[in-house]
Simulated assay, not measured.
Amino acid sequence: MNMATTQKAMALRALHVPGDPLVVPNVWDAASARTVESAGFPVIATGSAAIAPVLGYDDGEAAPAGEMLAAVARIARAVGVPVTADLERGYGMEPAELVERLAAAGAVGCNLEDSDPRTGTMVDAGEQAAFLAAVRAAASEAGTGLVINARVDTYLHGEGTPDERLAEAVRRGRRYLQAGADCVYPILASDPAAIRSLAEEIDGPINIAFHPGTPSLAELAGLGVARVSFGPGLHRAVQAYTARMVAAIKIGQSPYGPDLPDR
């Protein structure tokens, strides 16, 4: 593996600092990636739920792996900073293939989630840990330095009380770090007390998804968060604004005015 790839992976890993989080406004194509890079962000992160509809598919691994990775490759070619890709649960690829194809696309990091994207069923924690360990081993063998962001879906698809979901997220997060993950991503965790507990009890870098109702970026830093991402939020906002512009054109108005009609 070339030195530039390894250096980008090292740079990405080093940016995961609890209390001084890496902020990644997730992108969906080369143009949005260039916009984020031009704003001064040091890393580009893709979002599967943003790229999939751009490609004409639903999220949930409906997009073929080849098309998703081709989109990641176009993004990586368009920017000079490290790129980390949301690969859902790997699109059915074996760990060695996943590592090889990610590297070929120019990505040095990836998200991997612990629920079945097609059904929403939680994957057994031991099975997921074994998968992550195999990805880590394949990355070590290939020398890519791949940065693994292990998504924990207990707040999305888990069961039980908030305390039970928190405990399960901590249990899974610790196990995934032990398996070789670099960061743990308890998606949809938004309660400040729960976020603080996750950061303290997982005892490793955690990623929080920013959405309406999430603590501010400054508050997330104070809670010990190491990474903040936006998932498909920016893409959905752009699509909603585009819909309002189109609605203005439809009724004979300028789409560039300050008061656009609702859809």
Rank of each mutant, 00 (worst) to 15 (best):
N2W: 04
A4Q: 12
K8L: 12
M10P: 00
A14H: 01
A14Q: 02
P18G: 02
G19I: 14
D20Q: 14
P21D: 03
V27Y: 00
A30R: 12
R34K: 15
E37Y: 09
A50G: 10
L55M: 06
E61G: 04
A63C: 10
A70I: 09
A71Y: 03
A71L: 05
I75C: 11
G80I: 09
V81F: 06
D86P: 12
G90I: 11
G92I: 00
E94M: 13
V99H: 13
E113I: 09
G126W: 05
A129V: 05
A130L: 06
A139S: 12
R151E: 03
Y155E: 03
H157M: 11
R165W: 01
L166W: 13
V170W: 00
V170H: 05
L177Q: 02
A179K: 05
D182G: 10
D182A: 14
A189Y: 11
S190K: 10
S190R: 11
D191N: 15
P192V: 10
P192C: 02
R196I: 04
F210L: 15
F210D: 14
E219C: 05
E219F: 04
A221L: 04
V225F: 00
A226N: 11
R227Q: 13
L234M: 13
H235E: 04
H235K: 01
A247Y: 08
K250E: 12
I251G: 01
G252M: 04
G252R: 01
S254D: 11
D259V: 13
P261H: 11
D262K: 14
